[in-house]
Amino acid sequence: MNNAILKCENLTKKFGPVTAVDGVTLSIPRGRIVGLLGPNASGKTTLLKLCNRLLTPTAGQVSIAGHAPGVETKKLVSYLPEKHYLNEWMRAADLIEFFGDFYPDFNRERAYRMLEKLALNPRDRLKTMSRGTKEKIQLSLVMSREAPLYLLDEPIGGVDPAARDYILNIILENYNPRSTILLSTHLIADIERILDHIIFIREGRVVLNKTVDEIRAESGQSVDSLFREVFKC
């Protein structure tokens, strides 16, 4: 598929005796919102970190818009890690400055608009903020880039249901139809409504890779109930 923004070929990552990602082969086209769904410890975070080259694969390859991960691909990928990775001593305004300095596709106005919606003072330092607030700032920064590929690791994992809606709205409002979003989560019911495409991952392997329409047509189920069926304990 020439249109693919992200391709993984036989991608494998082992940590000692544990295989976290096991021979994953994927091709994700442009202009989709893709859910990377799986239970805890199924390899979602490892897969996204491999795509960002924060982890070196044991075997296999990743390519982003046809390039191996490197300086060029980092310009194309806007990544939200599951960790809190921002400098505590910085103010929200410093972070906007930082992102704007390094990423040519960063839209400062959009970032300030999002902070305004969150009723946050850009002069506040991060260390005075709650965990949930920091997560929202992190997501606002990541979504303020106009990137062809967003890799979002558990964007709604650590926040309350009201904030979940806020975050999903941020994602939808800032989504450009030519971009692709690959987001991982185990909270499927909350996120199902925004997804076009689903990838189920279990024990590091892709067990299902279909569009939402295909799933509904073939199984007559919602993604959430299919998930419960596939991952039944």
Binding site: N52, K75, P81
Partner: peptide, 10 residues
């Protein structure tokens, strides 16, 4: 943890 940011910069 800050490496997540530094190594995703271009």
């Amino acid at each position: 943890d800050e490496g997540y940011l530094m190594f995703t910069l271009p």
